[in-house]
């Protein structure tokens, strides 16, 4: 195969954990290929947001791109791991994306959609932040207006099942919507709460780790198949190194930096008890899982759940 030049679109600013992961990827790939593969990174959404990057990757406009959980909107079987309260922590989640079950989903997607995951890096969990009250138990969510994406059926069903009012608000309007009470709050990662300064207008954070979110290192399938074995090996390993670097940075920023900023700004950050998290999980999954089984088939959903169970047992997780 010929030498290759990659123009890769990502959406975070250059200092974001994901951008740093891609920088590690670029360094490895250029060095290991001896200059055979050239990498140029376009950060901050210069080539489009993750949804458009994914469309570009499908069409082969973009050979490699950053992907994230919006993948679940384009390829429905991927919804299975997007179930609220599925993973206990980011380590189990990371192991899931290295599992055989995910590998099978990935092969299916490569075949059906023409896009393949080379590596995945969980970047955190949704946690509730709201301006109204601390949340210690399921009942505390009752009647809270929580933001959802207008297009995400899954979060709408999940938040409603928890007793909250799902309110669609676009990304740019979240801050003012909280400050004026259009919404009480939302679920998002600690990192986003800090970046977007939501803590200025909402002072209650609950560490309930509901929905796990993830960044992908995606490649167009036709391009992938056109490469030599050697090139494929380099790109795959580069993606794994990038994902590992990103995972470490993101975990540290979520667990240390973000919590520090929240504490400095007088935010009441509280963990949720095991029992209450189980109640939240049961309530949300009771609404989401039947709908999901109908949409993508019970077989896939059961398989993903079983895989996560066995990973938890293997890793001795809680």
């Amino acid at each position: 195969a010929q030498s290759v030049s990659l123009q890769i679109g990502t959406i975070e600013s250059p200092t974001g954990a994901n951008s740093q992961g891609w920088q590690a990827f670029a360094q490895y790939v250029e060095a290991a290929s001896g200059g055979d593969i050239a990498v140029e990174l376009f950060h901050s959404g210069q080539l489009g947001d993750t949804e458009k990057l994914l469309e570009g990757a499908k069409l082969g406009i973009n050979k490699m791109v950053q992907g994230d959980e919006t993948l679940t909107g384009a390829y429905e079987p991927m919804l299975a791991w997007f179930t609220p309260y599925l993973f206990p922590d980011e380590f189990v989640m990371k192991a899931f994306f290295e599992s055989e079950t995910f590998g099978e989903l990935n092969e299916m997607m490569a075949e059906d959609m023409g896009v393949r995951v080379l590596a995945a890096s969980p970047y955190g969990f949704y946690n509730f932040i709201n301006k109204t009250r601390p949340i210690d138990k399921l009942e505390d969510l009752d009647g809270l207006k929580l933001r959802t994406l207008p297009s995400s059926q899954l979060t709408i069903k999940a938040w409603e099942a928890l007793g909250a009012a799902a309110t669609p608000v676009s990304w740019g309007e979240i801050y003012t919507s909280i400050s004026t009470g259009v919404i009480d709050g939302l679920g998002h990662t600690l990192g986003i709460m800090v970046d977007q300064k939501y803590y200025e207008v909402a002072k209650n954070v609950t560490l309930d780790n509901s929905i796990g979110v993830v960044n992908f290192y995606l490649v167009n399938e036709n391009f992938w198949q056109s490469l030599s074995d050697e090139q494929r090996k380099v790109l795959k390993r580069g993606a794994e190194i990038g994902a590992a670097a990103e995972f470490g940075i993101a975990s540290y920023r979520n667990r240390v930096d973000a919590l520090e900023v929240l504490a400095e700004n007088g935010v009441d950050v509280r963990p949720i008890s095991e029992e209450e998290r189980a109640r939240l999980r049961d309530a949300a999954q009771a609404a989401v899982v039947p709908w999901m089984k109908e949409t993508i088939g019970a077989e896939i959903v059961d398989k993903v759940f079983a895989e996560v169970d066995s990973i938890e047992k293997r890793l001795g997780g809680n």
């Binding site: 489009g48 458009k52 469309e55 570009g56 069409l59 082969g60 406009i61 676009s170």
Partner: peptide
């Protein structure tokens, strides 16, 4: 480069609720 880019980026430029 591919002509698909034309409609791909035209669409990106327009598809927005704002």
């Amino acid at each position: 480069q591919s002509l698909v880019l034309l409609s791909h980026f035209m669409y990106i430029g327009m598809e927005s609720y704002v």
